[in-house]
Amino acid sequence: MADSLHIVCPHCDAVNRVAAARLPDQPVCGKCAQALFTALPTDVSSARFDKHVARNDIPVVVDFWAAWCGPCRMMAPAYAQAAGRLEPRVRLLKVDTEASQDLAARYGIRSIPTIALFHGGREIARQAGAMDANRLVAWVQQATRDS
């Protein structure tokens, strides 16, 4: 891991430079002074998505979901639990495919929930279907190890 990493604030979207060794120390945003890691997934719209995926130096996991989707709603607590276990090494985002249909089309989301893993601004892994927290954490750890 690099000496310092760029981390996008989940609150104000400012890009922060954080020493890699300081990630576990609950760093705060230099612009808004809020925590850079909340142990919860961050809901992002189309307007915020690209910055979070492209500018975070840590892997970014994205849950493409919709409010009408039963499996999506069932998986939401497990996804939140996974965020608590994976941060600060990984950022978790949620994209509502109904509100951000352009993102669903751009990434060819055909079924939901679909979990996509991005690193360095590009998609490196994808998994369709609901997962429990343990399976999700294991999938992310395996995919980031393989990339």
Rank of each mutant, 00 (worst) to 15 (best):
N16A: 12
R106E: 08
W139T: 04
A130Q: 11
D96V: 08
L86C: 08
A143F: 07
A143I: 04
V90W: 05
K94G: 02
A104G: 13
F37E: 06
Q34I: 00
A116N: 00
H52C: 06
T42F: 03
P24T: 04
M75A: 14
L5N: 09
R106Y: 02
I58F: 08
Q34N: 13
G120F: 10
C9M: 10
V18H: 11
C69T: 06
I7A: 09
V95Y: 02
Q81K: 14
R145F: 13
T114M: 06
L136M: 12
D146P: 03
A20F: 07
R73C: 10
N134Q: 13
D57E: 15
V44R: 02
A14P: 01
S4H: 13
C29A: 08
R17A: 15
H6T: 12
A138N: 10
R122L: 03
V61R: 02
R91C: 05
V60E: 03
T114D: 02
V18K: 09
A78E: 14
C9T: 09
A54H: 09
W139L: 06
R89K: 14
R85N: 05
I109G: 04
A54G: 02
Q81D: 15
I7F: 12
R89T: 11
A19I: 01
A104V: 03
L93M: 07
P41G: 06
A104R: 05
V140C: 08
A82R: 04
W65H: 14
R106A: 14
V28T: 14
N16P: 12
L23H: 07
A76C: 05
T144M: 14
E87H: 03
L117Y: 05
V8N: 09
A47W: 01
A99M: 09
E98D: 15
E98P: 05
A99K: 14
Q26Y: 05
A105S: 10
D96A: 10
A19W: 09
A105T: 09
A2Y: 04
A76T: 06
T114Y: 01
F49C: 04
A138I: 00
R106H: 01
T114N: 01
F37C: 07
V62G: 04
E98C: 03
V28Q: 13
L40R: 15
M131L: 15
A39P: 00
P71L: 11
A128L: 00
G70Y: 06
C32R: 11
